[in-house]
Design a protein around this nucleic acid. Sequence first.
DNA 1: ATCACAAGTTCCATTAGTTGAAACTTAGTT
DNA 2: AACTAAGTTTCAACTAATGGAACTTGTGAT
Lengths: 262, 262
Amino acid sequence: MAASGDGTVGKALEVLDQVASYGRPVRFSELQGASRFPKATLYRFVQTLTNQGMLAFDPDRGTYAPGMRLVRLAHASWQTASLAPIAAGHIDRLSADVGETVHLAQLDHAQVIYVDKRNAADPVRMYSQSGKVGPAYCTGVGKVMIAYLPEADLADALGQQSFHRFTDTTHTTVESLRAELTDIRANGYGFDREEHEPGIICIALPILTETNRALGAISVTSTTTRTNLAGLESLVQRIRTTAEAIAKDASSWHFPIPARSS
Amino acid sequence: MAASGDGTVGKALEVLDQVASYGRPVRFSELQGASRFPKATLYRFVQTLTNQGMLAFDPDRGTYAPGMRLVRLAHASWQTASLAPIAAGHIDRLSADVGETVHLAQLDHAQVIYVDKRNAADPVRMYSQSGKVGPAYCTGVGKVMIAYLPEADLADALGQQSFHRFTDTTHTTVESLRAELTDIRANGYGFDREEHEPGIICIALPILTETNRALGAISVTSTTTRTNLAGLESLVQRIRTTAEAIAKDASSWHFPIPARSS
DNA sequence: ATCACAAGTTCCATTAGTTGAAACTTAGTT
DNA sequence: AACTAAGTTTCAACTAATGGAACTTGTGAT
């Protein structure tokens, strides 16, 4: 359990998360208002994190934002602990072949993290999507990944979903989501039926180990104006080739199998 | 001075940096061998960081790697504290116009952090992506950024350079580098004359505030087989337009001016 | 200018968490 | 089975974190 119970370090990282959650520079007083820590304690955490380059302080505006050291560290993570370097060549080819946007995602604490992407038309943009998080219950990649979770982890993951209704096809109950997960396991692939954004559809396949654990997932995204679910479904064989190739490379590179979450 | 002197949090982050520095998953014993911390202490740090998702533990191999939480946090940093979102449109256009690879970089503790890039249609095969760090003394973007540092910060930054000789044009002394920095300030732009990689050249311009502080830098990279320094120099006006447009947008977005480092 | 209030910063006695040598357990080798 | 190295736990000594309160600075109103 990743509770922020471990000591001073856990508390400091909790503050770091809080700053990151605003998505914009924040004043100390804003943090204080939303924090469980008393003023002096919070102040010291923010000081320490700033000293360490984990936060950046803007003296002119008196605001804090996540610091550049994170970008440096994340690069290391992305390089050594994500599927991106292994998958790069494969998704290049997939994207070129199908002419649509391709996403590579992994699961982290019941959340989807987009790890890489290829745009069909536009040039590649690294972190514009890399590092972005999304909900597991209403994205193609999210659903295919949780579908292959062991029951204990799945229950845990489902418990953490918010089931916010983004569109009128969004799953709003555990039951309807579980039903779809069963289908996904049967088919080996899943869709996003405009569940997150109207007009945006995708097909997603898991990247599976020999023991049927999902290391990650890839998806091909399109719009309802360009194609439909049947159109995406026709790409299954091509995408499966890529997913299997990535899985094979990952196993020979001894890519770490994600540890249990709870 | 970002010495890891601040308490437990500083020490834990030092361990995190150490793990990241290997660029591959590492065993506990490897860390212990290179660490100033005693076994039990190091062990607890690694445990805490793993609990927190800052490190990922692979139970099969008994190795640690930087965790996915960093990727999530870095995305927030990239979005709110880097120039990338502001510059995105501008460097899209620049890259399309000049047909070469464009880099956007910022300075962090005397190191260059590449924050975004655009590949030319025919991409130069180079190792560089967002979050990647590079030396300041032998890259175009690094030199133009430190050229505009106040003397106190510049002295500090120069003291941190390793002056490793990558090629035979690499600067190896503070003196020769300082001489070039004077030229850069006079011209408003600088080059990478195959100082980092043979065959790779670039022209770089700083992104300056009204008070002549460098918020970041952009560069256009090419190869000696495709063009030469004069060819790159002919792009100065075009690149300057982009740099100034980014600076203008940054000031109206109230982009934070980097704080003094030491 | 002067005051009032909020935001930000420092102090320091108390308390809680960190420290690390040593003992222990597990995994791998001869 | 005996040995060795890697990984894990323990616990008393100790050091660093805690947070209420006092203080300073910044902002805006009169």
